[in-house]
């Protein structure tokens, strides 16, 4: 399953809820304000670290750039995708769940 999250983890518990329901082998793609969850050195990063071996983490590049966030600030292991990569991820997974 592919999970997408579009809310800032500092505003809602959406990312947290996603992580609690994602199962081994799933992919998580952070988009829109969700990209703030991909940054290291935050209180949220601690929630992501323990799942790094089980889940594949992606972040949408255009949303990072729009917010002035450099790739060097991402938690290790996050892959940056463009819109084409987003489409590929949706196509690769049977089901997509959008966490709103």
């Amino acid at each position: 399953m592919l999970h997408t999250v579009n809310k800032s983890p500092f505003e809602t518990s959406t990312l947290l809820s996603c992580l609690r329901h994602a199962r081994e082998g799933d992919a998580v793609l952070l988009i829109e304000d969700g990209v703030y969850g991909a940054l290291k050195g935050t209180t949220v990063a601690g929630e992501i670290w323990p799942r790094k071996g089980q889940l594949a983490f992606y972040v949408l590049g255009p949303d990072l750039e729009a917010r002035g966030l450099d790739k060097s600030r991402l938690i290790d292991g996050f892959k940056v995708v463009d819109y084409g990569g987003f489409v590929d991820l949706v196509a690769e997974h049977d089901v997509t769940q959008s966490w709103l």
Binding site: M1, R20, H21, R23, D94, V95, T96, Q97, L100
Partner: peptide, 16 residues
Amino acid sequence: REEMAEIMAEQDVILS
């Protein structure tokens, strides 16, 4: 929560 995650994993389509 664990059962909920399983239920989600069984679906063909998820609408949020």
